[in-house]
Each structure stands twice: as structure tokens, then as C-alpha cells.
Design a protein around this nucleic acid. Structure first.
Lengths: 341, 341
DNA sequence: CCGGCGTGTGTGACCGTGAACATGCCGAAA
DNA sequence: TTTCGGCATGTTCACGGTCACACACGCCGG
């Protein structure tokens, strides 16, 4: 097998190599790896020494094969280039790593069923042990059900009555806080710019808006269906300003709020004197917009961490609260104030 | 776990199950899977039918074990919650998926050596076949070398003379474009806000700035070391304005530019009348800042795609240009103009 | 004094797949 | 006709771990 003198075609060392050098059986090495209780300390040390010497690294594929456990958590995400999802992903990864799990992401390019199915199949092929769905559209959940993917699933951003286990910043409460803030300032003519209609998250914020408006007996106008982008906010703002029958706008994310502010200024008006604007998310830039944006803060990182806790509690059973919620926080800055008239 | 009467915990079908039902040997099934040329069409079809019927899915772990190929590409990234890195990651994932590869990410929480080593070890444990380093600090490259990770590596954002193979938007050219734009407008007192000092990317932009300044014979002030955040831009802006010996600022990303604009307005001054500001990246929000930000666009998505092509061309050898560069583009908006005096 | 039990360790099978090698068949070349 | 080579397929083994079981030993209680 080995030509003398030639540099050995180095196969990575296996437990059997370690075993041979340590003068034990491969099973003993395996026991050391898995922290089996009954091993003599000196035997264990000898094995550990050899491992270090050979720079032995367990082969994940072999382990996965025999245990049928991949220790991979899949993340299905849409618009993962945005601040919120991206922060959550980073937090999930960190938390998962700390627990000895790996993350594999699949991002959705479009919302059509084929794209969703493709991404899910990709994840399923890895035998993921858990799935985190970020920015879940209704369709994603449906497709999941169809493909009968039978791993624990956690979704971020839910409405609170989903079929799958969910964890979320309480979007409805956050939206109500934002709306109440505007009403308390004296606004009565308020528009709401929503996210894309099939986003659960967008729907929850809209529901919070409508709930608060009706509870406070403020007449409601129909929400305007947006797409999360600043561009959309800008164009919607221009459109609305041709009529100008409002004093405040609640945009369901900070980007759209930014676009609206742009449109308001283009029209020669002032924020917040002529129009108050409130956003949602509190992206790091929001504090530096002009004027600094009043918004609702979500702790995306905490969301990611809890998400992993929930999932692992399910994978390696151990009771954890199932439908837990993280409180959002109203951040009042300069973009909202009392209406001028 | 299994409640009596419940459906039996079924083991996933293997090629042997498929083989049995199709009346062939498992090896024939394997050949169908791997598109081996010499299989009778009717045999192949029979096998495919059985696969569909059983919903057979190849076991990646088993395949990885026997081929010693994981088909996983690792991504090591810092600040993956920011627009640029996040966009690149998404693009890399999409491109990799299209080529039948999986992505596993590890994000750096801090820049200390331990954190880097930990993330790399995590990726290495998966036997990744390629590594993409996003937002590479010098330290990352050093640690990589120390750990003797012997997979193809591609870094985004390089200075052009790295030891590892790199692919990048030409940061230096982009920075020169930005600087030249300011000079052409008539500015002579220009400050530069850099990114963190150990970021290759930040260094490249700084070098571009300095090169252009000296080539145009404009006296240079020392660059100010920043940290990419809008908060920093704001504080640096306030600080600089106490002296006010400049007419323009080149911030090496859009967030810092935003912070500076905030500080300028806080001081009762106008952008661009009193101070011109230019950023870098062209994040989607930049067009809606007030005023809309002049900046240098980087095509992060294209970067991600090319990155995968480069890596796979290395993994599955096939000649591809090695050190390729993507041209940045100057986007002139409202935040820059001629100095007032 | 003997059987049973706990501790520490070894032996062999097995997970699902692919590679190497073997086999049977058929047609073309010698 | 015989030989040879290629096609289509089967058989066996290896990959690197874990698991079930066996075994040797010492200790304890009946």
C-alpha cells in the first residue's frame, strides 16, 4: 500500500489509528470521545495524548451515519440581506455553535412555491434536525406541511396562532404601541404602510394597528400594501401627499419609513411638523435618519438565541416554554410629534 | 418515544430497499444515482420509479463517509448582519445550491484570536471543501495559516496582493473614484473616515484615498479610524466640526456617512452646501437619506456568485481566472457639491 | 466457597454508499 | 470457431464511527 520513502498519502487519522498508538481498542477511544464514565483516568489520558499528537478530529459523516443524527439546524430565510433576518441568523448560528450544532442556510429568492420547495428539499437532503423559518410567508408553512418534513420547526415572527411552534417578538403589541403613540400625540388621520401581504409578520403588525385604532375609536383608512423597501415608502409617500388627508404614517418597517420621510421632504414639508412618521425594527441607522426615527425596537439577537433554545429543547427533549414572546420596545425620537392643526 | 399503535418508526429507505423492489443489486441503484453511462434505459427507469415510490433520498452522511467529500462550503464572516456581507452570503448560498453544494456559516463575534480559531475549528470539523472569508481581517488569514486548514480559500474584499486567492470589488479603484469626485468638485480639505484598522477592505479604501490625493497633489490629513457604524460617524462628525477645517468627508461606508450627515445637521449646517459627504457601498437606503447619498456601488451579489464559481473551479478543477475583480460604480446623488467658498 | 455484580476493556456487527473487481453475455475481429 | 473487448450487472469490501455483547477481574454476601 505504501511505497517506502514516498510521503504517505495522509488519510486523516481515525479512532483505530489512535487506538493502536495508545495500545487500546478502538472502542475505548470511542468511549473517551463520548465521555463514557467507566474508563480509568490514566487510560483516558493516554488516549487524549495520542489524539492531540495525531491531531485527531472525529469524522462527522461517520458519526452521523451510525447515529442517524446530523446535528445540523436548517435556516430557511427570505430577504436575509436585511438587518432583522441577518441579525437573527447570526445569533442563531452563535447559539447553535455553542451547543455543538451546525447551521445550514437556504435563502429564498422568490416566494413562488417552486423556490420554496427547492430550498426545503436542499435542507431536507442534509437530514436537518430542526428548522428555523425566518420571515415566514404563509406559503412557506403550507409547503412545509405538504413536503411532510418531520423535524421540529420554529418560526420567528408569528401571529400567535400558527400551527407550528413559534417564537416571536410580539408584533401585535409592538404595532399597538406605535399606533397608540401616534394617537396620544393627537393624530387622528393615520395611514399604515404594511409589508408584503403574505408575510405573517406584516399581517401581525397590520392587525395590531387596526386593533388599536378601533379600540381608541379612531377612524381607520385602508392599509397600504408595501414591500418593505425604502423605494416603496418613497413612492407611496408621494402618492399620499397628492391628497394630504393625514397627519401621521405608521410604516411597518424602518426602511419604508425612511422612504416616506424622503417623499415628505421632497414635497417641501417637514417631519414631524407637517407629518409624523413612525417605523418598526429600530435598525442601527434609524437613530441617525433625519429626523431620527421614532420606531419600535425588536431584539433580533435575543430572538435568535431563544429560538435555538426552543429547538434544541425539542430535539433533545427538555421542557421549555413553547410559545414564548419577546416584548418590543417603543423608541421615541424626533420623527413624531403633535399635529400642527 | 413510540407509542404502541403508532406508525412504526420507519427507517428511511436505503439503496438496498430500492434495489430489492426493483429487482436489481444495490450497486445498480448507486449507478443510477451517479449517472453511470452503462445502464439499460429500462433498468434505469425501473429504479427511478421505485425511488419515486419510496420517496428515496440519498443519505449524505454515508456518501460523505465513503467519498470523503462533504460538499459543504464554509463561510466565515464578520458583521454578517450588515447589508454587504449579508447580501454576499445570500448570493453565495444560492450559487452553491445551484451547484449541489451546501453552505455552513460561522460568524465571528469578536476579532480576538480565540474567537476566530473557534469558528474555524467549527467549520473544519465539518470537513468543508472550500472556505469563503467575508470581511477578512488580517488576523483571520493568519489564524487560517496557523491551523493549516488545507482547503481552497477565497476572500472577498482584498487589497490585491494577499497570500490567498481573492476576488474583490476593486476597493482601491472605488475609493479613488470617490476621492476624485470630491476633488473635481473643487474640494481641497477632505477628511477620510476609515473602517476598523485590521480590515483589509478598510485598508484598501484608505489606500485608494491616499493614492488619489497624492496623485492630484492635494494635501492630505490623517485618516480617522472608525468602526463602520453610524454612531461612530456621528461622533466623529461632531468632533471634526468643532474645528471645521474641511469642506468634504469621504466615509468608507454608507452608515458612517449617514452618521456624519446627522452631525452636520445637528451643527446647523447643510449638506452639501457647507459640507460634502460621500459614502461607500450604496446600501438600498442610501438613495433615501437626506440628502440622498453620493456613494460608490459594490455589487455584492455578483461578488458572491463569482466567489462560488472560483471556489468550485478549484475544488472540481477547471480553469477560471484567479484574481478577478469587479468594477465599482460611482453613484452621484445629492450629498456632494461644490464647496461654498 | 461460590455466584452475582460492577468496573474496565475488547470483539464483531452494522449504518448507507461507492469503488474495485468479478461475471455473463454478445458481437466483432482473427 | 475462438478470442477479445465492451456492456450491463452483481459481489465484496472499505469508509469511520457507535452499539450490543462478551469477558476478565475483584469484591461482597450468603
Amino acid at each position: 500500500m505504501t511505497v517506502p520513502g514516498e510521503t504517505q498519502r495522509t488519510r486523516a487519522p481515525s479512532i483505530r489509528d489512535v487506538a493502536r498508538l495508545a495500545g487500546v481498542s478502538h472502542q475505548t477511544v470511542s468511549r473517551v470521545l463520548n465521555h463514557h464514565p467507566s474508563i480509568r483516568p490514566e487510560t483516558k489520558q493516554r488516549v487524549l495524548d495520542v489524539m492531540a499528537e495525531l491531531q485527531y478530529k472525529p469524522n462527522r459523516a461517520a458519526r452521523a451515519l451510525v447515529t442517524s443524527r446530523s446535528r445540523i439546524i436548517g435556516i430557511l430565510s427570505a430577504s436575509s440581506e436585511q438587518y432583522g433576518p441577518a441579525s437573527s441568523i447570526a445569533a442563531i448560528e452563535t447559539a447553535a455553535r455553542a451547543s455543538g450544532y451546525w447551521i445550514s442556510t437556504a435563502s429564498l429568492e422568490s416566494t413562488d412555491a417552486a423556490s420554496i420547495a427547492d430550498a426545503l428539499a436542499h435542507l431536507a437532503a442534509q437530514r436537518i434536525e430542526g428548522l428555523v423559518v425566518i420571515a415566514p410567508q404563509v406559503r412557506v408553512l403550507e409547503t412545509l406541511a405538504e413536503m411532510s418534513i418531520d423535524v421540529p420547526i420554529v418560526t420567528l415572527q408569528s401571529t400567535g396562532d400558527d400551527p407550528v411552534r413559534a417564537l416571536s417578538v410580539d408584533q401585535i403589541a409592538g404595532a399597538r404601541m406605535a399606533t397608540r403613540h401616534l394617537i396620544e400625540q393627537g393624530h387622528r388621520a393615520i395611514y399604515h404602510l404594511t409589508g408584503p401581504q403574505d408575510w405573517i409578520e406584516a399581517e401581525a403588525r397590520m392587525r395590531g394597528f387596526l386593533d388599536e385604532m378601533s379600540e381608541q375609536d379612531v377612524p381607520t383608512t385602508a392599509p397600504i400594501l408595501g414591500d418593505w423597501t425604502a423605494d416603496f415608502g418613497y413612492h407611496a409617500g408621494r402618492e399620499l401627499l397628492t391628497v394630504r388627508d393625514f397627519t401621521a404614517i405608521f410604516a411597518s418597517n424602518d426602511q419604508m419609513a425612511l422612504g416616506v420621510m424622503h417623499a415628505v421632504r421632497d414635497a417641501g414639508l417637514d417631519v414631524p411638523r407637517d407629518v409624523s412618521i413612525i417605523g418598526f425594527d429600530d435598525i442601527p441607522e434609524a437613530a441617525h435618519f433625519w429626523p431620527p426615527l421614532t420606531t419600535v425596537r425588536q431584539d433580533f439577537a435575543e430572538l435568535g438565541r431563544r429560538c435555538v433554545a426552543l429547538l434544541l429543547g425539542d430535539i433533545d427533549p427538555a421542557a421549555i416554554e413553547h410559545h414564548s414572546t419577546i416584548a418590543p420596545e417603543l423608541i421615541v425620537r424626533g420623527s413624531t410629534g403633535r399635529p400642527a392643526f
